[in-house]
């Protein structure tokens, strides 16, 4: 098994996710892109864990999953609340907290 392939896939997924966060306006899509980045790192964790024969990376991956699940709960709730009050899911519209 070649770890490099997995790592390359992980890097590709992370880049796609990061680009999505930066270029998309829709909050839901941004959110999905964030999930993509998280899972890309999970893949990297698991790959390294496998390569080194240690379980630490897998444990870390579980942590990330748990945190991501919690984050989804909070984040989606916020997005729904904003959508209800502003009738918009665009992250650029939610820009009141500024100078």
């Amino acid at each position: 098994m070649n770890t490099e392939h997995y790592l390359t896939l992980s890097a590709l997924l992370f880049t796609i996710g990061a680009t999505g966060v930066l270029v998309r306006r829709n909050a839901i899509v941004v959110f999905m892109s964030v999930e993509l980045m998280l899972n890309a790192t999970n893949l990297a964790f698991v790959s390294f864990s496998r390569a080194h024969g240690q379980l630490d990376g897998q444990v870390a991956a579980f942590f990330v999953m748990v945190v991501a699940a919690a984050e989804v709960v909070v984040g989606l709730a916020i997005i729904v609340a904003i959508f209800r009050s502003r009738r918009s899911a665009s992250v650029d519209d939610a820009s009141l907290l500024k100078y």
Partner: peptide, 13 residues
Amino acid sequence: RRLQTGFVRSYAL
């Protein structure tokens, strides 16, 4: 303070 635009995506960048 003009740097603080309020746009999430610019902070992300």
